[in-house]
């Protein structure tokens, strides 16, 4: 890190370009404007969010840029903030808040992708042995994704009673935000939680290709790089990690193809249900969610 002043903000960007090496948006466009560096440099030159709308829309929030930035700039946070400034950003959708407190003990906040697959949600719930929160903040997660405003009373209602608890969070963008909002909570992504379940771990094989959910991984990189290195050592399975140990996300078919280029797995195992569908379109081997492994 070059200097401590103004770290985590765009003025600290020195233009080293390290973020480009891991950026799916850059890989897709090969244009410096479509990279965190390009955005930070444009901001340094006085650009407004509206002028940067195209790269802001193109960013998938995979977070790969954050752990590689030598200035430790919160690049994902910078892009999320810029997206909030775009004129077309939607406001949060208010959902009815369930009456009464959430059940005691650890809670699963499944998120939209997992909720969309009730059978998979049931499997996950059974494997983790924890209650599912009636209010999983899906509307807040959506607002984080689209740059919509988050209504303060709604945020308070969602967070009430969650701090200090163990939470398994399916939506990684929400997980990232909960780390800031709930400093006393014990937070885990869905992939990490399932990866620690013995029956799943035992069924991962060296011929498997394991797809780490990029957002959750990069948001807690220094800790999770060890977790996944251990998982790789235990199981022998290959992973969607590049040479810097940064996860390649299957944000679209092109990225999924790049992820699989040169790999010849017998089976693909994903943490994120949304990536299962994309990978099924480009791979000619079975693609399973981690929770499906227990019955495979």
């Amino acid at each position: 890190m070059y200097s401590s002043a103004h770290s985590r903000e765009f003025p600290a960007c020195s233009g080293c370009s390290l973020c480009r090496l891991v950026c799916p948006m850059w890989r897709s466009h090969r244009d410096p404007r479509f990279s965190p560096e390009g955005l930070a440099k444009a901001l340094q030159c006085g650009a407004t969010a509206a002028e940067l709308a195209a790269p802001l829309d193109a960013c998938s929030f995979c977070g790969a840029c954050d752990p590689v930035c030598p200035e430790r700039i919160d690049l994902t946070g910078m892009i999320m903030e810029l997206r909030r400034q775009l004129p077309q950003s939607a406001t949060t959708v208010n959902v009815p808040v369930p009456p009464g407190p959430a059940p005691a003990g650890a809670l699963l906040l499944p998120g939209a992708a997992l909720r969309a697959d009730p059978a998979l949600l049931t499997r996950v719930k059974g494997l983790l042995g924890i209650a599912v929160a009636a209010d999983d903040g899906a509307d807040i997660a959506q607002a984080l994704e689209t740059g919509g405003a988050i209504d303060t009373p709604r945020q308070r209602a969602f967070l009430r009673g969650l701090d200090g608890r163990t939470l398994v969070v399916g939506d990684a963008l929400l997980l990232r935000q909960l780390r800031r909002w709930l400093p006393a909570a014990r937070l885990q992504g869905l992939g990490e939680a399932l990866g620690n379940v013995g029956v799943i771990r035992r069924r991962l094989a060296s011929a498997d290709f394991y797809v780490i959910e990029a957002r959750a991984y990069h948001a807690d990189y220094e800790r999770l790089v060890g977790h996944y290195d251990g998982l790789r050592a235990d199981t022998g399975c290959a992973m969607n990690l590049d040479l810097q140990r940064i996860a390649i996300p299957a944000v679209d078919e092109a990225e999924a193809r790049w992820m699989l280029q040169g790999r010849r797995p017998a089976r693909i195992v994903v943490e994120n249900p949304a990536e299962r569908e994309i990978l099924r379109r480009v791979a000619d081997v079975p693609v399973l969610h981690l929770a499906e492994l227990a019955e495979a």
Binding site: Y2, S3, A5, H6, P11, A12, L43, Q44, C45, G46, T48
Partner: peptide, 13 residues
């Protein structure tokens, strides 16, 4: 090092 804010439309010091 203090990195001052950049005036919009300028290169920065």
């Amino acid at each position: 090092m203090n990195i001052p804010p950049v005036e919009p439309g300028t290169v920065g010091p």
